[in-house]
Design a protein around this nucleic acid. Structure first.
Lengths: 131, 131
DNA sequence: CAGCATCCTTGTCGATACTG
DNA sequence: CAGTATCGACAAGGATGCTG
């Protein structure tokens, strides 16, 4: 069943473009929220701390172009815009949600590894010296 | 079970750092290979087309520091270095592999969505005109 | 509210050359 | 073989101001 003609390890393969887009911090966080329910633009902006309006705008536009997110404008005044995940996007949401879950579950292991690595490399790289 | 004190949506949260690292195109591809079996540096470099030696070096060093990959040097001549996935890294490999799988499985849907989006936006954005 | 346009500062990356 | 070091090009990203 792995007879697909695509190979993400080939440089010219278009899957690279897709992988580059979905393997993105902001994409993961945005799709993580849209997987729950539709969101308004400014609601996303407030929820995802540290995300600028410019980058959110770019991210949503790319996701819409890739068919992962739908954009619906309501003719209220002022205008209301709602972003929702598409069926295609939903097939991806689980995999991305797993990344968030993994990060939150394993952050402490990663931090411990970092401390050990840093200590080992501030010491003697090999065979830690003792005073 | 979601009572973890971490929240990837908070800007100061360290999970952000982890998410930023693992949600990276090269990380996904490298860990995808190391999940199969250990690899040598230049073997990875040849396998992952378009990846420069500098970026591979950086990526591997970060993965090693984060405790996801182990580096073993053998005192042959010339020196031989083998990179392998750690137990911690293995808990992540499945989630990352899913991203590659999704890319290769859904690239055509994404490309179709892009074509439709572009056509719609070259036309009149709303109500496609007909000659 | 939901953006777009602009400027400008960073960092990221590729190319190249050199080391143990 | 397995890297490190340096440079320059480029693009991503933040800050700000303006529009429908």
């Amino acid at each position: 069943m792995n007879a697909l003609p695509w190979d993400a390890y080939a440089s010219g393969c278009p899957t690279r473009m897709v992988l580059d887009r979905i393997a993105d911090k902001w994409t993961v966080l945005v799709l993580g929220l849209l997987g729950e329910h539709p969101w308004r633009f400014n609601a996303l902006l407030r929820k995802i701390e540290g995300l600028s309006q410019k980058v959110l705008s770019q991210t949503l536009k790319r996701l819409e172009r890739d068919g992962l997110v739908s954009r619906t404008a309501f003719a209220t005044v002022p205008v209301t815009v709602e972003y929702a995940i598409t069926p295609l996007g939903r097939t991806l949401a689980g995999a991305l949600g797993a990344l968030i879950q993994w990060s939150e579950s394993n952050i402490e292991s990663v931090q411990a590894a970092q401390r050990e690595f840093d200590a080992r490399h501030r010491a003697g790289v090999e065979a830690p010296a003792h005073p």
